[in-house]
């Protein structure tokens, strides 16, 4: 079969311009990333390669330095959380500072618990924004958690957690067996990023976390609402199969 000469080379100037305009049209990189996430091929929906590199450098450099700095200055008073890397790697850039944290009224001796705090919001002081170590339940001590000295604990203040970091932390909490922490982070995500680009992913993780917390009826209700609102797409496909596995479809 012999192909005809294409209009892009044989057509009028107007025809060529129109076809050229059509060819440069392309979906956003974020939409492609969402597809990778939906297919289970990527972990975050908005992480561009350049961002990922920046995050890696930051987490290996600035963040580590901040923790090291704090630990050095105040001895071993800081408590590091397991999920810290999840939050840390989600924070792209920002100032890093350290400020004192009020000492807890009832210090739990020997406990490796870390309290999650609300991630920063726009209503903050406007200067540095607080980032919190991710929530780790007191009942879930981990090898990476280490309560260190009784000297006054400090609060590490760095950039705001991004939407990605919240979702990653929630996912990490869930996979490490702490669905309550995941739910807390997801609630925070909903408050901080209403209508965010990872909202659907957050809802899917929430379904899992509810079920893992023993709140299966709630999880099923949430899954059914999800399907009602979003009957199509890969996230819906995953939710549908989740319901199917639990015999609720």
């Amino acid at each position: 079969m012999t192909d005809l000469e294409r209009l892009s080379s044989s057509g009028s100037a107007e025809e060529r311009a129109l076809l050229q305009a059509a060819r440069v049209r392309r979906p956003s990189a974020a939409s492609r990333q969402r597809a990778l996430v939906a297919l289970g091929l990527a972990t975050t929906a908005t992480l561009a390669p350049a961002t990922a590199v920046a995050l890696l450098k930051w987490s290996q450099g600035a963040c580590g330095a901040a923790w090291r700095f704090a630990a050095t200055k105040w001895g071993t008073g800081l408590v590091l959380a397991v999920g810290a890397a999840g939050v840390a790697t989600g924070v792209a850039t920002g100032q890093v500072a350290v400020e004192p944290l009020e000492a807890p009224s009832q210090p739990s001796s020997g406990s490796s618990a870390v309290r999650a705090e609300r991630p920063p919001t726009a209503s903050g002081s406007g200067s540095s924004i607080r980032v919190v170590p991710p929530l780790v339940d007191a009942a879930e001590p981990s090898a990476a958690s280490a309560a260190v000295s009784a000297s006054p604990p400090k609060r590490v203040v760095v950039a705001a957690p991004s939407e990605v970091s919240l979702i990653d932390s929630a996912r990490s909490s869930l996979t490490s067996g702490n669905p309550s922490a995941a739910l807390a982070l997801l609630s925070e995500h909903r408050r901080t990023y209403p209508g965010g680009s990872l909202a659907l992913e957050a809802r899917v993780i929430r379904i899992e976390a509810l079920a893992a917390s023993g709140r299966l009826p709630e999880a099923v209700g949430e899954a059914q609402r999800f399907l009602t609102q979003h009957p199509n797409g890969l996230m819906s496909h995953r939710v549908r199969r989740w319901l199917d596995r639990h015999g609720k479809l």
Binding site: V37, G40, L41, A42, T43, R171, S172, L174, T175, V204, I205, I207, E208, R238, R241, W242, R245
Partner: peptide
Amino acid sequence: QGEESLAVVDACL
């Protein structure tokens, strides 16, 4: 078999 956990699948990558 199947998706053991949505989050676990993500964590594998």
